[in-house]
Simulated assay, not measured.
Amino acid sequence: MRELWHPGTEDIELARVMHALADPARLEIVARLATSEGVNCGTACSGIELHKSTMSHHYRVLREAGVTQTTLVGRARMVRLRRDDLNAKFPGLLPSVLSALNQPGDKRPSAAS
């Protein structure tokens, strides 16, 4: 398997990060990743009712925007949020997004919409 491309911290662009976070399915993935140090992509997307190729697309958008880091472990792909890189580039952005997702009474977006 070939190595996956990730932008360097200095190459992460706000517009690409915001685009990646603008989709309800990707927001759901980010919310799930926020509760762990890294998960297998199959585990993180269980319960999100989207086709496997659509989920792969969402993971690619998040990775190429610099929101996530994907490492290959055997045949599995382990995904984690790039918290340190995002905080270095855009201080407070990720905590603000995650906080907004967890507001009481605020309904989390549906990934299927």
Rank of each mutant, 00 (worst) to 15 (best):
V30E: 05
T43Y: 03
E10C: 07
A22C: 11
T35S: 10
H58F: 06
Q103R: 07
G38N: 08
L4T: 01
G66V: 06
A112L: 11
L4D: 11
L21A: 12
P24G: 07
L81H: 08
M78E: 09
V39I: 07
L93N: 04
L81E: 07
R108D: 00
P91Y: 03
S110E: 14
R108Q: 13
M18I: 07
L4K: 07
K52C: 00
M18W: 01
R60D: 13
L50N: 03
K89E: 00
T71H: 08
T71L: 15
R16C: 02
S110M: 10
F90H: 05
D106F: 14
T68C: 04
P95S: 04
R26M: 06
S99Y: 01
N40R: 15
C41Y: 10
T9H: 02
L81A: 05
R60P: 03
A25V: 12
M55Q: 09
A76P: 01
E37S: 15
P109Y: 05
L94M: 09
A25N: 10
L27T: 01
A22R: 10
G66I: 02
A31K: 10
L33R: 08
T43E: 15
C41F: 11
E13T: 02
A65L: 00
G105E: 07
L14I: 13
T35I: 04
R26V: 03
C41K: 15
L33C: 09
R108K: 14
N87V: 03
H19R: 01
T9A: 02
R83M: 08
M1P: 00
M55N: 00
E37K: 12
C45V: 13
E49I: 08
V67K: 05
G66Q: 01
L4C: 00
Q69M: 11
M18A: 11
L27P: 02
A44Q: 01
M18F: 04
N87Q: 03
G38L: 03
A100M: 13
D84K: 10
